[in-house]
Design a protein around this nucleic acid. Structure first.
Length: 570
RNA sequence: CGGGGUGUAGCGUAGUCCGGUUAGCGCGCCUGCUUUGGGAGCAGGAAGCCGCAGGUUCGAAUCCUGCCACCCCGACCA
């Protein structure tokens, strides 16, 4: 391909709307343009990369027995109503306005279950692995970071249909391994974490993550990589809190200026682990007191699992006062104004005495609290958010790092939520009817592209690897306007490299060398082949690795070999 | 949805507080000449409903009202 005939609109300056490197570079390198908030047009160069990712996805999905579908984005709303997801997804689901009864599909569990119901009748029809690479629509409240969170995006989604839980486990494992191969082939530095299934439902799930300050998720990683989990489910080892000797009765004392745990520590000399922090929520319409140790932060995802509902929220100031008798800062488990108030506590506090907590009277706290003796704790749960530096497994375990991350893939053991709702059933060997057991697996295609750029760029531009690069090599012709020698050599090399199966972009523009070099570095194909009169006089051309920045002269007849070598090393 | 910010030529921006030339600059674009190993030089040129609508005023990019769009933080996120 000749550069002079392509549409690769590069930009020298950073567009003001782009804040993160991948977004800036996708715009600057002429890969994509924004059309509306969260909606991007992919230009030829960007789409070439997307197609390479899709090819890898297809190869690996086919390799585990996946069968490719192409399901519609326009869906009848009835099907979505049957699974309850019209209400569940609420505003995220796009509704068609001028044709009643249609929505834009944000994912395809429903449609898969619908077709399974039509034709999967027997255990003999199972298992199945169905997948597609297709555009999804989600009315995200806040699109951000370029293509990382869009309202329209391409997803590889696949679904396993099984007769038994063991079958689901096998299909899930196949996907887990396929995903590792996919991300490895793409050249991503990634890790996988145990995750919360969230509103998708189901029993098990894992996320594939790329560490990035621009990620929307937070993960806890052991320093030796022996443990990795989404912060929503992450646990850590904390030193046990010893019981203090004696059996002193609780005692009220004045704490006029203590509003926070830090106030108790600093103004009253109480050790952090002897403070029981009270957090009040309204769960299912009823007030709930949650006790946390010291400054531990309540993890709402863990709370949701403990309560088996997401229907809760922090109490407001007037609700605090009405139920406890005090304002925030003086609340505790003893002497609550509302005697029916439920109290749960974090596991760290189990069996601990000598605690200080609010007396439900402004400016007053109790000391010498023994939760087992003095309070009624309905249940104990792990409810805390783990912190950077805590250990995993025990006092000698590896320390945790807490990092931001971008989710590039997610695998779920769905179970029968959708098959039950849509009556997708099969008959077993004994003629008995069962709902099909489903798994659901997703990869964000544009996110792979953006994450790759996040991990592979420098101040000059992108640094593609051989797997994802839109072109293998860029021929940079020096003074192609005047020098017929250079032009002829470039054209010969272009033909030679193309004949060898390489994808070549020949920069034949009559521009100055600086412009061509800068564009070549910005586009970032793995190899640059620089052709100029000076070196041609010696029968030589220059090859440059975008990855290392190293250049070397090579005999013109060895150019193909030199390019291949650098490409392989990219 | 809450908070913050920004809308001026394809891109980046000055001017806006304090109303008053023909709305300025850099990049890019077009023409010509020169130049060609790291974003060249000279000369000439095209391109702006100053986000939209209304209002105030002799006069509005600038002041007022409403709306829209985009970005950031938060909420949300299969």
């Amino acid at each position: 391909m000749r550069y002079s005939t392509t549409f690769i609109p590069t930009l020298k300056e950073v567009p003001s709307e782009a804040q993160i490197p991948s977004h800036q570079l996708m715009i600057r390198a002429g890969m994509a343009r924004s059309l509306a908030s969260g909606v991007y047009s992919f230009l030829p160069l960007g789409y070439a990369v997307v197609k390479k990712v899709m090819q890898i996805l297809r190869e690996e999905m086919d390799a585990i027995g996946g069968q490719e579908f192409h399901l519609p984005a326009l869906n009848p709303i009835e099907i979505w109503e049957q699974t309850g997801r019209v209400a569940e997804m609420d505003d995220v689901l796009f509704h068609i306005k001028n044709r009643e009864g249609l929505v834009l599909a944000p994912t395809h569990e429903e449609i898969i279950a619908y077709h399974a119901r039509q034709h999967i009748k027997s255990y003999k029809d199972l298992p199945q692995i169905w997948y597609q690479i297709q555009t999804k629509f989600r009315n995200e409240p806040r699109p951000r970071s370029g293509v990382l969170r869009g309202r329209q995006f391409v997803m590889k989604d696949s679904y396993t249909l099984d007769a038994t839980p063991e079958g689901l486990d096998a299909g899930y494992e196949k996907h887990r391994l396929a995903y590792e191969r996919i991300f490895t082939r793409c050249g991503l530095n990634f890790f996988s974490v145990g995750a919360s299934s969230g509103a998708m439902g189901g029993s098990g799930s894992q996320e594939f993550m790329v560490e990035s300050d621009h990620g929307e998720d937070t993960c806890a990683l052991a320093e030796d990589n022996s443990y990795a989990a989404n912060i929503e489910v992450a646990t850590s080892w904390t030193p046990p809190i010893e019981r203090v000797p004696g059996d002193d009765a609780i005692e009220k004392f004045a704490t006029p200026a203590a509003k926070t745990i830090n106030d108790l520590i600093e103004k009253h000399g109480i050790p952090e682990e002897r403070c029981a922090k009270s957090v009040v929520y309204i769960a299912g319409g009823e007030p709930l007191l949650i006790l946390m140790c010291g400054n531990d932060e309540l993890n709402e995802e863990k709370l949701a699992r403990a309560l088996d509902t997401t229907q809760f929220r922090p109490a407001e100031e007037n609700e605090l006062l009405a139920n406890t008798g005090a304002h925030g800062g003086s609340i505790g488990p003893i002497g609550l104004k509302n005697p029916k108030m439920r109290v749960i506590a974090d596991l760290r506090l189990k069996g601990v005495n000598g605690l200080v907590s609010g007396a439900n009277e402004d400016g007053q706290h109790y000391r010498n609290i023994d939760l087992e003796r003095d309070a009624t704790i309905e249940s104990w749960h792990d409810l805390r958010v783990v912190r950077e530096g805590e250990r995993v497994g025990g006092p000698d375990g590896p320390r945790l790092r807490v990092v931001r991350a971008i989710e590039i893939g997610h695998i779920f053991k769905l179970g029968t939520k959708y098959s039950k709702a849509l009556n997708a059933v099969f008959l077993d060997e004994n003629g008995r009817e069962h709902p099909i057991i489903m798994g659901s697996y997703g990869i964000g295609v544009e996110r792979i592209v953006a994450c790759f750029i996040e991990q592979n760029h420098d101040e000059l531009g992108i640094r593609w690897n051989a797997a994802l690069t839109p072109y293998d090599v860029q021929i940079v012709g020096m003074n192609t306007k005047k020098s017929e020698t250079v032009r002829a050599a470039c054209e010969e090399l272009e033909a030679e490299l193309q004949a060898a199966g390489l994808k070549v972009l020949y920069d034949d523009r009559p521009a100055s060398p600086g412009v061509k070099f800068k564009d070549a570095d910005l586009l970032g194909f793995p190899v640059q082949l620089v052709v100029g009169d000076k070196n041609l006089d010696n029968g030589q051309v220059e090859v440059k690795s975008r990855k290392t920045g190293e250049r070397e002269l090579t005999a013109r007849e060895n150019a193909l070999e030199a390019v291949r070598k650098l490409l392989a090393a990219s």
